[in-house]
Simulated assay, not measured.
Amino acid sequence: MGGADERVPDASGMRAYAAAFVARATARNRLPLDYSVASLRLVDFLVDGLRKGGADRERAREPLFALGAYVGEVLVRRAGAVWVDLDAAQRACFGQPVGVRMPDGRVWNPLGKVRNRFEVGGPDESLQTFWLRLHGRTRREAA
């Protein structure tokens, strides 16, 4: 996936999209994007870097989408979420074509959360804090 990819994947393509982003990012920069909850702090740092580096909304569109896909995939792998295609009302509300559904049925918008971090910034938009406040996670018991 080199260059600008104008095609936005549907829910069935989000896992592969996130994996391709991680492969590119870790190959070039050796970033610790390991789908851990702790790695969400790095996503905060990367989004802040785009904003502070002066990227405009259009230039930041693809990296923000990729980071949002990564955040969603962390929710899939660590919280029991599944990628879902949003219906028309959800698209209008979230401004995104896909989201994640938590085990309790709630739908969350990691792509929009990353965009908000870029546009608004600040601790209220932290992706690490988003995880901590996230309702509907499965509780994984120690075996």
Rank of each mutant, 00 (worst) to 15 (best):
D85S: 09
V84I: 15
L33I: 08
L46H: 13
K113H: 10
R59V: 00
L31F: 10
L50I: 01
R106K: 12
V8H: 11
R101I: 01
A55C: 13
V100W: 03
T26Q: 06
N109I: 02
C93Q: 06
P103Q: 12
Q128H: 07
F21K: 00
F65I: 04
F130D: 02
R106S: 11
A66Y: 10
G136H: 02
P63E: 07
V74G: 04
L42P: 05
V8I: 15
F45P: 00
D10R: 13
A19N: 09
D124P: 00
L40C: 07
N116M: 12
D124M: 10
R57T: 02
A60S: 09
R51Y: 10
L50D: 07
S39T: 14
R7S: 12
V76W: 07
Q96L: 02
Q90F: 10
T26D: 11
R137L: 11
R30T: 15
E73I: 01
Y17I: 01
A18G: 05
R57H: 09
W108D: 11
R24E: 13
L50T: 01
A88E: 15
D44M: 03
A143H: 12
Y17P: 01
A19S: 14
N109M: 02
G112W: 04
R77C: 10
N116L: 10
W83V: 01
A69R: 02
A66H: 07
W131L: 07
W108K: 15
